[in-house]
Design a protein around this nucleic acid. Structure first.
Lengths: 265, 265
DNA sequence: CCTTTTTGTGATTAATCGGGTGACTTCTCG
DNA sequence: CGAGAAGTCACCCGATTAATCACAAAAAGG
């Protein structure tokens, strides 16, 4: 979406506040007051690029959130809560919203019937693809086969694999260089390494996985492999579920062949 | 703002999703898919009141969030991630935003100079008032004097008082009935109880506090005292800080007189 | 093979919301 | 008392988005 870390803190803070539901003026006013501690409408207007006449509206909005107090004098003065308190407040508020959503959704879901057999689904964006992978990991019961580019073998992936291994799921991993292999062996003692089917770096392949022989996912990096990792949106994946699923059938054939070869080595 | 718990889960869920930044169509589509698990544009349109032709846009939006995958067939089919995963995703995303905000604000704040001596600030809403009270508690170094209606003596207030007591701050508490007093004594052993200045239940007074003899806060319940507690917005407070602050001076006089009387009992 | 229905895309309209500006009243202070 | 500042209102305009429609492509079905 955005949120460049190399930005002026004012801009970054304003942007986040807006995404929390504040109007632009309210966000800018808050930021101005946060650095002033206390100030009048004119003070705020000068440091924040908010029209002076609109500072009052902005302050009203902030008062509704309990972020600002007003001194009834002339000129009015405005006071903000500390940054830390404000952040905690947002966190608490948000947690509450998330709980509400969770409850509402759970009261809803009974009319569900999953486990599609046919069909191949597509996902875009590294974050979303990783999400699917992690979800597959957590539902794994027996076996996870996972081939990946090292760039995509992030911390959360390793954690999820490790957690699955603790549950007794057998992990078979490929595509990583030998030195990373050792590191993995430490974190996930039970993992088996096997050689990749091809040289990953030459292709635009991202990951290739199979869980319990009935859920599979394949991803590719669309912009070649140079700028790919820098842009997290460049990963595209397809996945499928069910014994009769065509994608599953194909991948199972490949993997079985490959893993059998390994075993006989 | 709203969020009535006695609402249909669909409405509640939709509302929350919108507040997270989704458009109403996207939110409704998500809710529909959440109960269907999987479905086509027509399915969604029928159960969600979203115009069929707009379902595609809504799904695009949801795909950007990584909440929905699509099956490239005709008719297209849509698949949603589980409710639990979705909530976790929102939580993670939000936590990240909060951290960004925290960082940005802290990089900003150096230009600060607080400690107003003059002036009385006003706060509205029980949540905001409690916030101020808690902030006062955490900055307390020596003494907290706190008179309150029992209705306003919530768990978080007690926790903050208890935490201050652990830091060695002396706590003087009034306004609570004798049975609640005992309970408090257990949770905050170091607290001193004293008799209220007047019968709280007869007035619309909410709380009255002084910290270290230099920060004070007074609140009132505006809608009489019957419906007041049910509506958290009905509490209004004023507060002031600094030895020369007029509100502080007045309250200090009152409390000193009262507490001295106590001591000589 | 042709007809009819369904599906997907795009354009268009209407309405709402929010940022931006200025007029006008009230207040403060020299 | 008068100048300038503070506060309140009302209005405009552009962007966003909900909502509707028109149309082409694709399935379905006889």
């Amino acid at each position: 979406m955005s949120s460049n870390p190399s930005k002026e803190p004012e801009t970054a803070a304003t942007e986040q506040l807006e995404r929390f539901g504040l109007s632009t003026y309210a966000a800018r006013t808050f930021v101005a007051l946060a650095s002033l501690g206390t100030g009048t409408a004119r003070d705020v207007s000068q440091v924040s690029e908010v029209p002076r006449t609109r500072v009052y509206d902005a302050v009203d909005e902030l008062r509704e959130w309990g972020l600002v107090d007003v001194q009834q004098s002339s000129p009015k003065e405005f006071w903000v809560i500390s940054a830390e308190t404000a952040c905690r407040r947002f966190e608490r508020d948000f947690q509450h919203r998330a709980d509400t959503l969770r409850t509402a959704l759970s009261e809803l879901e009974p009319a569900e019937q999953r486990t599609e057999q046919r069909g191949v689904w597509t996902v875009n964006g590294q974050a979303a693809v990783t999400d699917r992978a992690l979800e597959f990991f957590t539902t794994a019961e027996e076996e996870i086969v996972y081939m990946t580019t090292e760039d995509l073998l992030t911390e959360d992936v390793i954690d999820a694999l490790s957690e699955a291994a603790d549950r007794g799921v057998s992990i078979k991993l490929a595509g990583v260089s030998s030195d990373v292999q050792e590191q993995i062996q430490e974190e996930i003692p039970g993992a088996t390494m096997f050689e990749s089917l091809w040289v990953w770096s030459d292709t635009s392949a991202g990951r290739l996985m199979m869980v319990d022989g009935r859920k599979t996912l394949v991803s590719a990096l669309v912009n070649g492999n140079s700028a790919s990792v820098s842009d997290p949106r460049s990963e595209t994946a397809i996945w499928g579920e069910g014994d009769a699923n065509s994608l599953v059938v194909v991948l199972k054939a490949i993997f079985t062949w490959r893993l059998d070869t390994i075993d006989s080595n």
